[in-house]
């Protein structure tokens, strides 16, 4: 069964970052995520959405409910058409910073979710997909 797309959001400003993380919280709550799992998911969403605004010049966030047998989860896809990341391995390291925050955006977000996938092409943009199971 293909995943059910819940919503797609345009993220261009720090206000949009707040909106998208609130929407993610709402969905995780509906699915019955524990408070800790909700918080981890929403924090990862906040990091990645901010990255997109600061580095990617904004983009879109697609939010969907995924199933794997009896397991239910939330999957989010962050896509921008910004400058892209030349060295992903380097960018995933703690301490790598694009400017704001502690430089923990990507690596930190990865630790907060169950599945993390990143594809980036210089000059074309970046797509990050995360999944957190209930």
């Amino acid at each position: 069964m293909p995943p059910k797309v819940r919503d797609t959001f345009t993220v261009r400003s720090d206000h949009d970052v707040v909106t998208v993380r609130q929407k993610a919280r709402q969905l995780a709550t509906e699915l019955g995520f524990s408070l800790v799992n909700q918080t981890k998911l929403v924090t990862a969403v906040s990091e990645l959405a901010r990255n997109m605004v600061v580095w990617g010049g904004g983009g879109t966030v697609r939010m969907e409910i995924v199933k794997n047998g009896a397991l239910q989860g939330v999957r989010l896809t962050f896509e921008d058409h910004g400058r892209g990341i030349p060295d992903i391995e380097q960018a995933m390291k703690d301490g790598y910073s694009g400017g704001s925050g502690l430089g923990l955006g990507l690596g930190g977000a990865k630790r907060l979710v169950d599945e993390f996938d990143i594809v980036s092409r210089v000059g074309k943009g970046t797509r990050v997909t995360i999944t957190r199971w209930k």
């Binding site: 800790v36 918080t39 981890k40 924090t43 990091e47 502690l102 923990l104 977000a109 907060l112």
Partner: peptide, 14 residues
């Protein structure tokens, strides 16, 4: 600080 926030911050590496 809420417990869930503290647990998340530790995992985030902060």
């Amino acid at each position: 600080m809420r417990p869930a926030v503290a647990m998340t911050l530790v995992e985030l590496g902060v």
